[in-house]
């Protein structure tokens, strides 16, 4: 009985500390020190939230850079993340990838059997990957330059500006944030119109 009582008291005491005091104290500190990050690193234009710089969005218009395919339903569903969980030997996976390869090649005017970077035709783990590889951005330059009538050199410049580096050159991969890139793209066009 003694140990039962101690069990109960210890459980309640530690629950209070670890389950309320700790997370609420961290919330308070985070909201004070890192307000932007703690609230989802959102991008605001006017008084509207355009999205989070950390969360990928679905881009389908030919005027924008496209991100990776997403396995969530619907694509880039940021309130129900997840991957396809298809095996490498899955016939469904291979069919899907073949379809996406054709689409990427047609949209960007590539030859019939042109190799395509893996990230542009394979779904991410979260379905919300905000990045593509610089190679995947590069193969879309031609299309966007034509659609928006912007010189390719300008596009290559904003791709370079939006390329993030691996940590100390070792951990992680070189990557381009698609949302930030597209917002810069809109900015570029706005500047040209002025």
């Amino acid at each position: 009985m003694l140990q039962l009582k101690r069990s109960l008291l210890t459980f309640l005491g530690l629950s209070l500390i670890c389950g309320l005091i700790y997370p609420l104290a961290v919330t308070f500190t985070a909201q004070t020190l890192f307000t932007e990050q703690a609230n989802g690193s959102v991008m605001i234009k006017g008084n509207q939230i355009m999205g989070s710089r950390l969360i990928g969005q679905l881009f389908t218009s030919p005027k924008y850079f496209h991100g990776r395919p997403s396995a969530t339903d619907p694509q880039y569903n940021a309130s129900n993340s997840g991957g396809s969980n298809l095996a490498p030997s899955s016939a469904k996976l291979i069919t899907q990838v073949q379809k996406r390869l054709q689409q990427v090649r047609t949209e960007n005017g590539l030859p019939l059997h042109a190799p395509v970077p893996a990230d542009l035709v394979l779904t991410s783990a979260s379905g919300l990957d905000p990045h593509i590889s610089p190679e995947s951005a590069a193969i879309q330059v031609n299309r966007i330059a034509a659609e928006r009538k912007i010189p390719e050199a300008d596009l290559e410049k904003i791709i370079r500006q939006n390329t993030e580096k691996p940590l100390l050159g070792l951990w992680g991969k070189e990557r381009v944030n698609v949302l930030l890139l597209n917002l810069d793209l809109d900015g570029l066009e706005l500047k040209r119109q002025l």
């Binding site: 996976l93 990230d119 979260s126 990957d129 990045h131 992680g172």
Partner: peptide
């Protein structure tokens, strides 16, 4: 490259 189910930033 087996990027199915992997994130670009992790590689």
């Amino acid at each position: 490259l087996n990027m199915e189910g992997k994130e670009v930033r992790s590689g």
